[in-house]
Amino acid sequence: MQNAVDHVAGYDYGAAGLATSPVTMKELDLLKQTITFDSEDARYLRVAGSVLEDQTESIVNLWRGVINSMPHLACYFKDAQGNPDEEYKSKVKERFKQWIIDVCTKPYDQDWLNYQHEIGLRHMHEKKNKTDGANAAPYIPMRYVLAFTAVVNDTIKPFLVKKGHSLGVIEKMYKAWCKAVLLHVTLWTQAYCNAEW
C-alpha cells in the first residue's frame, strides 16, 4: 500500500516547517470517542485502503465531476477572469488522490494532526492558492467543506465493493470510512473557528 510520495506537488505531510496543530492529542482522543472511532474501525479502514488505493483516480474524477457540475463549487478552481485554472486543478487532484490513501493508512499521530491543520488552512485565506501559486478564489466557505462530506461518503461504497469482500466487511469498511472522513473534516474546521472550537 502506498504510504510515502515524492511526486505529488505541494504534498508535505510530516514536513518540519508545518505548524503544530492547535488541537491537542487529548482533544483528538476525545473527538475520536465522540465519533465512536475505535480499533475495529482503524482495522477496517486499512482494509478499505487496500481496496481503494488503485481506484483513487476514478474516485476523484467522480468527485470532481460533482464539483464541476455546480457553478457555486467550480468557481473555487477558476482564476479572476472566471477561467478554470487547469494547472491548479491538476495539482489539487493529485493531493486529493493521496488524501484517500492517507485517510486509510496514516496513523492518527502528531504528524497527521498537524497535516489536518495544514489542510484546513489551505481552504482559508491564509494558505488557499499559496501552495500552488494559483490565482483562484481566496477561500472555500466552511459550509461547502462540510456539505461536500455527503458526496465523499455517499459515493464511496461502489468502490468498496469491487474487490469481492463480503457484505459484512463492506459495511464495516464503509462505516470506518464515514467516521474517518468526519474526523478529518471536523479537524479542518478548526482553521475557520475561534478558540471556542
Rank of each mutant, 00 (worst) to 15 (best):
V145N: 12
T131V: 14
M70V: 04
V5H: 05
T56F: 04
N68E: 14
R46F: 11
N194T: 10
C75G: 03
K26P: 01
A19W: 03
Q116H: 10
Y108Q: 14
D132H: 12
Y88W: 03
R143P: 00
K89A: 10
A195W: 06
D111M: 09
G10W: 00
S21M: 11
N114L: 13
A19F: 04
G164W: 07
I170R: 10
D85I: 09
N194L: 07
N68R: 11
L30F: 07
T155S: 15
P71A: 08
V8N: 04
H165L: 09
A80P: 00
Y13K: 05
R122F: 03
V145L: 15
Q55G: 00
L113D: 06
P71M: 08
M124F: 04
V185L: 05
W197I: 08
I59D: 01
N3M: 11
Y108M: 15
Y44K: 03
T131H: 05
A191C: 06
P138Q: 07
G17N: 13
K175E: 13
K78M: 15
N135G: 08
Y11Q: 01
S39H: 07
K157S: 11
V151T: 13
R143L: 12
P71W: 10
G120Q: 08
C178N: 12
Q81I: 03
D109E: 14
H123T: 07
H72L: 13
C193P: 00
D154Q: 14
P138I: 04
K89L: 11
A42P: 02
C75D: 03
L45C: 08
D132C: 08
V23L: 14
P22N: 12
A176I: 04
F96T: 04
L182W: 07
S69W: 10
N114S: 12
H165F: 13
D154H: 13
S166K: 06
P84C: 05
T131I: 06
W112P: 00
G14F: 11
Y115F: 15
M70W: 03
